[in-house]
Structures are given as structure tokens and as C-alpha cells.
């Protein structure tokens, strides 16, 4: 677990890095956007070379485990917490857990419901997905209940498109644009956010198996980049690096569109474990 979490904090996933490189190539030399991408890319190289945090905000730690429900899960939970405490001491994770009642920092990144560990029982070898989600970008995440008269969004794909574009517009540069957007259409108030976040685990290069969603992803990505918000909201041609949309069954009375905003420093990895709990392969 130590290696997995350390890598998540210090090495930006390949698909994200390559999307940023492409974004740099699109900007005019000498522009603020070009300079910003240049600084970002230099910073990514430094962090991986020195094995130090990509961003000082090492985020909220989200862990999703899929596997057979047996006792090894408890062992896994313990080893995740141990690794987090150790990495916090080493300065690879920042002290990011505060008790809202006492306003005291727990100093070791663990606390009530922290880290969040979600377990889904499946009859397959264990898979762990981990994400360090930056606070600045999490603050830009939002949920719409359709119909929404303010942006004239009805209960259809056009309504969903409006929600996503509005969310990107509202975020401006504040979530450290260019962002990666995970969306869930449907679900309830709670599951919507979880499924939206899950979408962010998808490889930026993949294609949505649903033709409607694939088309919507493409359209929204192109249109969001026409907003001109640019890296850090300082203007430019790339406002989003990716849009990933999923869906979940909804109650007939509800139609939620949940948008999870993740910053350019989207740090997430998925691994499969051996029976002993060691990393078998990176997915």
C-alpha cells in the first residue's frame, strides 16, 4: 500500500501527463497559457524525479476496494491506514484531516470516516482504486436537480450538457483548470457523487461504450474548451482535459446530474492484488 499511495502522490498518471503535453502544444508560444503549461510540466518532472508530492494539497484520500468478502479486507484496511500515517510523517501526504467540532488537525491524515474506504463485494481478485482528490477542485464539484430553470435544463441529454457546461463555467480557474470532469446522470444525492468520482478513474483515452454518452463526452469537451477559461482561468484554449460520463438508475421523481471536478493534478491509480495482498499489476 505504501508504494501505491506514494506513487499516487508523486507521479502523475501517464494519460494525464500526455493530455497536458498536447494542451501545451495547442497554445501560442509566449502566451500566459503556454507559460503556465510549461511550469506545470516542469513541476511534474521534478516531483516524479524527487519522489515528492505533485501538489502540496495531497487531497482527500479515497479508496475503493473490489474483491471477495473475506478477512483479508481487514488486513488491507489496516495496511492502508499504516501507509497513510507513515507517508504523512514523511511529508508525502499533507496533514489534511481536521475535526470539524474541535477544529483540531488530527496530524496523521486519519480520523472519523477518514480515509474513506468503500468496499464492493465481487467474485474476482481484489482490485484497489485510489484517488487523492484536491480540496480546491472538490469545492468546485456540484449537483443539479433537473429541471433547472436558471440554465433551462430539462430532463434529457441537452439538459445534461447544459449542467456540465455551467459547472465548468462556474468553476472558472478555481479548481486548477484544466480539469477532468466526472459526471453521473441519475442515482440519488449520495450515489451521484460517488459514481461521478468513479468516472474520473477512467483512462482519458478510452471510449464510452454507450454511443450517446460517447457523443456527449466529445461535444462537451470541445465546447468547454471554447469557453476560453484556460489553465488556471487565465485564458487559453484548454479548459478541460477530459469529460467522462456515467449513469445510474434514478427514482422517477428525481433527475440528478452530478459533476465532480478534478484538477489537472488528477492523481489516481488502479491496481490488482495477489492473494497475499501485493501489487500484481497496474491497470
Amino acid at each position: 500500500m505504501y508504494d501505491l499511495i506514494r506513487k499516487t502522490s508523486t507521479v502523475l498518471p501517464e494519460d494525464v501527463t500526455s493530455a497536458i503535453k498536447k494542451a501545451l502544444a495547442r497554445e501560442d508560444k509566449g502566451s500566459v497559457a503556454h507559460k503556465t503549461f510549461d511550469i506545470i510540466l516542469k513541476s511534474i518532472v521534478l516531483s516524479s524525479k524527487k519522489s515528492l508530492p505533485i501538489c502540496q494539497d495531497t487531497g482527500t484520500i479515497l479508496v475503493m476496494i473490489e474483491g471477495r468478502p473475506d478477512k483479508s479486507i481487514f488486513h488491507l484496511e489496516k495496511s492502508i491506514k499504516d501507509a497513510i500515517r507513515k507517508l504523512t510523517k514523511e511529508g508525502i501526504l499533507r496533514q489534511n484531516c481536521v475535526c470539524p467540532l474541535t477544529e483540531k488537525n488530527t496530524l496523521d491524515n486519519t480520523g472519523l470516516h477518514v480515509p474513506q474506504i468503500h468496499f464492493e463485494p465481487v467474485n474476482r481478485p481484489t482490485k484497489i482504486s485510489i484517488m487523492l482528490k484536491g480540496g480546491g477542485s472538490e469545492n468546485m464539484s456540484t449537483q443539479y436537480s433537473l429541471p433547472n430553470s436558471k440554465i433551462q435544463a430539462g430532463r434529457d441529454m441537452e439538459g445534461v450538457r447544459r449542467c456540465i457546461l455551467d459547472a465548468v463555467f462556474q468553476a472558472q480557474g478555481k479548481g486548477c483548470a484544466p480539469g477532468i470532469i466526472g459526471v453521473c446522470i441519475g442515482g440519488d444525492r449520495a450515489s451521484g457523487y460517488l459514481f461521478a468520482k468513479k468516472q474520473i478513474f477512467r483512462n482519458l483515452e478510452d471510449k464510452n461504450p454507450s454511443p450517446v454518452l460517447a457523443s456527449l463526452e466529445k461535444t462537451v469537451l470541445k465546447q468547454a474548451n471554447e469557453l476560453g477559461i484556460g489553465p488556471m482561468g487565465l485564458g487559453g484554449k484548454t479548459t478541460l482535459l477530459g469529460v467522462k460520463i456515467g449513469n445510474a438508475g434514478r427514482h422517477p421523481a428525481s433527475y440528478f446530474v452530478t459533476v465532480s471536478y478534478s484538477c489537472w493534478a488528477t492523481r489516481r491509480y488502479v491496481v490488482e492484488l495477489t492473494q497475499k495482498g501485493e501489487i500484481k499489476k497496474w491497470i
Binding site: 511550469i39 506545470i40 516542469k42 513541476s43 521534478l46 501538489c55 502540496q56
Partner: peptide, 13 residues
């Protein structure tokens, strides 16, 4: 002054 958000290593240098 707007600094490049997230570029923690470049800025730390």
C-alpha cells in the same frame, strides 16, 4: 499575483 496552482515542486524549488 497569480501563481501556477498545483505546480508545487517547481514553486518549492
Amino acid at each position: 499575483l497569480h501563481a501556477a496552482g498545483g505546480a508545487a515542486q517547481y514553486l518549492a524549488e
